[in-house]
Design a protein around this nucleic acid. Sequence first.
RNA 1: GCUCUGGUGGUGGAAUGGUAGACACGAGGGACUUAAAAUCCCUUGCCCGCAAGGGCGUGUGGGUUCAAGUCCCACCCGGAGUACCA
Length: 963
Amino acid sequence: MEYNFGELEPRWQKYWREHGTYHVPNQSDREHFYVLDMFPYPSGAGLHVGHPLGYIASDIYARYKRLRGFNVLHPMGYDAYGLPAEQYAIQTGQHPAVTTERNIARYREQLDKLGFSFDWSREVRTCDPAYYKWTQWTFIKLFNSYYCNQARQARPIDELVGLFGRQGTEGLDLACTEPLSFTADEWNGWDERQRQQVLMNYRLAYLADTYVNWCAELGTVLANDEVVNGLSVRGGHPVERKLMRQWSLRITAYAQRLVDGLDQVDWTDSLKEIQRNWIGRSEGAAVWFPLAMPVNDNVLPGAQACMTQADPQPVPSFEIFTTRPDTIFGVTFMVLCPEHELIDKITTPGQRAEVEAYVAWAKNRSERERQAEVKKVSGVFSGAYAVNPLTEERIPIWISDYVLAGYGTGAIMAVPAHDSRDFAFARHFGLPIRQVVAAEPDAVSDPASWTESLDSKSGYSVNSGFVSGMKVKDAMRAVIDRIESLGIGHRTVNYRLRDAIFSRQRYWGEPFPIYYKDGMPCALPEECLPLELPEVGDFKPTATGEPPLGHASRWAWDEANRRVVDCSLVDNATVFPLELSTMPGFAGSSGYYLRYMDPGNSDEYFSRQAVDYWRQVDLYVGGAEHGTGHLIYARFWNKFLFDLGLCVCEEPFRKLVNQGMIQGRSSFVYRSKSDTGLFISKGLVADMDAVTPIHVDINMVDNDVLDVERFRQWRPEFADARFELEDGRYVCGWEVEKMSKSMFNVQNPDDLVARYGADTLRLYEMFLGPVEQAKPWDTKGIEGVHRFLRKFWKLYDNAIQAGRLDAEPSKAELKTLHQTIKKITDDIERFSFNTAVSTFMICTNQLTETGCASRQVLRPLAVLIAPFAPHMAEELWHDMGGEGTVCDAEWPSFDASLLVEDTVKYPVQFNGKMRFTIDLPADCDQAAALQAVTASADGQRWLGDKEPRKVIFVPKKIINIVL
RNA sequence: GCUCUGGUGGUGGAAUGGUAGACACGAGGGACUUAAAAUCCCUUGCCCGCAAGGGCGUGUGGGUUCAAGUCCCACCCGGAGUACCA
C-alpha cells in the first residue's frame, strides 16, 4: 500500500475529534504537566509557515509527556482584541467582532490540518464576555488593593483605610505615586472626596496625570514596550510625550519580586537578562542638596527642610539620586530636568527669560527628536546655587533635558570627570571638571587634557576628603554611611521600570468596570460583571476627541438598579457615566493560562481544585519578542493573584523556550538598467550596479530557478520579458528578509500540507534547525523529509507483505531499536528535535538494509515517532496490531546492555608510553567494561596480552590505559 | 555605548573535552526505463597526487590539556535587546 497521507490524515483527525482523544480531565491519578503556546492574534492574513513552528515543538513535547504517562494540559485560544481589526473596521465599517470571528475560523481550519493535540474544549478568546469578565474582575481587585513594602505583598485597600484612620502614614512603607505624609488626625478630618484622592495614590490600579506616549495617528496612548525609537510598534507612527489622565497599573511595586523571581524559573539567560535590563534595578543613594541662596517663596513644593553642618537653620533643599556616592567630592554642578517643579522657584530674575525659553523648547520637542539628538548638548543655567553637603561648596544649578523626569528624582549631582554625559555637558558649557577617582592612587592627571570621562568603578578615590585612597567600592559605602549619619540622605534602590499605562482610547478592547461619581472613579460591584462592550455607530474618536465609546448611546451606570442604562439618564441621582477608554492588548493575555485550567467556570476565575492540580505552566513556548511586554505583565498579574491567595505558584511559567523567528527567503530577478525588458540570470550579472533587483514570488521559483513562463504571466509589464540564461535556466538571487506579503516570500502551510501532508510539514519544520534559532524558510529540503516518511512507511508495508511480523528480530535490529529509543528520548528531553528527526532517518536506513519485519521492533518505533508524525503513527500502530490509539501507548524503554560499546579508541603515545581511551555508556560497571574491552577484538588488537600497568577512570569512560 | 547571542563545506545544520562535517538539501556520475516520474547505487571540506598516500582545515591571535569547534584571555565580524536610567 502506498503512503496516502491525503486520505489517512483527515481520517485520523476526524477520529480524534469524534472520540475526544485530546480531551483532558482536571482530575487524574496521573501526574500533571502543562504545556502552553503563546496564543495567536488572529490576523486577516492567516497563518504562514513561521507561526506553527512553536506549536509543533510544543505539540511534540506534549505528546511525548502523555506517552510517558502524564496527564497533559495542552490548550489553545485566541488573543482576539487588538488594533488591526479595529483599523480595518474604521476603513470598512465592518464590525471588529465580525472580522475577528472570521479570522478565528480561518486559523482554526489551518491549525486543525496540522494534527495538533490541543484540547479545544478549553478554548478561550479574550473578547468573549465569559472570559473578559475575569480580566475586569482582576482589574477591580487591583483597584481595591495597595502594596505593602514591608510585607512585600498586595493587601485590600480597606485595610489601608483603617491604618490611616489609626496612625496616618506613620510607620507605613507603601508603594505609591508620590510620597505623602499625614497624621491620623489629618486623615480623619478629610471628607470622603479628599480621602479618595489620597487613596488613589496607593491603589494598584490607579488614575493619575502622567506623561504618556501619545500616538496621534492611532488616536491612543501606548505602553513603553509598544514604542520603539519614538515610533509605535504597530504602524510605525510618531509618538509624543503628553500629560494625560490615565489608568495605570502599579507594576513598579513588584519590581524587586520580578527581579528575584527570575532566579526561580528555567528560562534562557538571554531572556532573563532582557527582563533584568528592562526592570533596571540600580543601587545607590538619595542625597539632599540644600539651596545656597534665599528663595523668595519659602513654600517649596516637594522640598523639605534639612540640617547641614554649616548652617543649623532649616534651609530648602532638593533630592538627587546617584549610583556613585563616592564621587560626591567631584560634583561641580547640579542638573534638573526641564519638568522639575523647583525650576520656577529658584530661577533668578536675570536668568528667567532664558530658562523659560529653554523649558518651553524642551517641552515642545517630540520624543523622537529628543532621542535622535542624544549627542547634541543643550541646557541653561538657572542662576541658583546649591551647597555640596560634604564639602560645603557652592555649586551652580543647571537645567537640561539629558536629565529625565521619570527616573530617580529628576535631578542629579553632576560629576563630569566620571560620567560621560556630565563630561560632555561640562565641556560644552565650559564648566569645571575635577578628578576624584583614579586607576591607581597616584595616577592623577589634569582633566583638561582628557578626551573622555573615567567612568570605571575599578580604581581608587582621590581628592576626596575622608575617603581619599580608598577603593571605589569602599568609598561608596563610607560616603553613604556618612550621609546617613548626617541625616542628609540614605541608601536606596531605583528601577527603570515604569508603571504600565492601562487605558487605550480605542473601541476593540475590554471595557473598564468603572463609572464616575462626581468625577471620582468607582468600581462596579463584582456581581455585575461582565460589563459588556457596547455597540457604537462609529469606531473613530468623537467630535469632542473622546474615545469611540463616546459614541455609545447606552453607556451609563445606574448605581441603584445595578445595570447599564442610556446616557441620557445621567442627570438622575443614581446614574453615572462609564469609563470611555478600554484596556490594552496585554490585559487579556496576562492571565489566560490560568483560565485554561478551568475555562467553563462562571463563578470563579478558576477553581481552587483546578489550580491546586495544575499549579503553573510547566513549559511555555513562544517568541522572545514578548520579553518586555506580555512576559512581564503576566508575571506581575500572576504575582498579584498569588498575593490574593488565588494562585499557588508565584511564577506562572516554570520553563520557557523561545522559538526562533522564521524569516523569509526572498527571491530576486535582475533587470538591466539600460534595457528594462531584459532580465539577466544571477551568474551572468557582472556589475550589480547595472541591474535592478526585483522581488519575485517564491512560488514561481524552484531551487532558485525561475519559471520564466509564469513570470511572464505574473504581471502585464513582464509579459514581453526577455531573459539572458545560464545553462538554459534563469537563476534567481536570494536574500533573507522578514516574511511578508510585500516581499512575495510568504509560504502558506496549507499548500505544503496538500502537497506533502501534515506529518511531513511537522517533521520538516523541526528538521530545519534548533527550535530556538532564527532561520530562513526554505522549502527545498522538504523533499528529503517526505522521502524519509515514505521510506519509513515502506518499512512497515514490506514487513506486512512479507508476513513475518512475529519473527524474532536480529541482534543488530534490536541494537538499532534501542539506540534509537535512547537517542530520541534524549533529544526530546533537551528539545533537540532536529537531531531527533535525523535519528529516525538513520534508524530507518539501517532497518531497511536488514529488511526488518519484526513487530517487536516496528511497534515501539511507531510509538517513538508518534509525537512527530501522529497521523502516520496511528495508522502504523493499528497495522502492527496496537490497541486503542497510539496516544495511549507506553513510551518504550531501552535495554542498556544492548548498547555497551566494546571498542577501544584513540590510542595515543606520549612520554614514551602507549595510552588508550575507551568510551562507555553512562551507567555501566567500569571494571566489567574494562574486562570486556581487553577481551574484545579491538582490545586484543591494541593491547594484545599485555597487562595494563595503570588504568585511570573518569566518569562515563575509562581513560588512559597505560602499558 | 552597555547587555545577551552566534561565527563549522555550495546550503540547512551534527558533534557529554576524545576519529570534525552526522543527517538532509544541492551538485556530479551511474543503474532501471522507449521516455519521464518514482526508486536505487557511487562521489562530493580544501590543496597536491594517475594512484597509494600526504598536507591544510571549525572567524583571528595566544593559552590550558595526552587531546580543544567545545574550556580560559584578547581581538575581528554578524544577529538580538536596550538606549541620555545618573
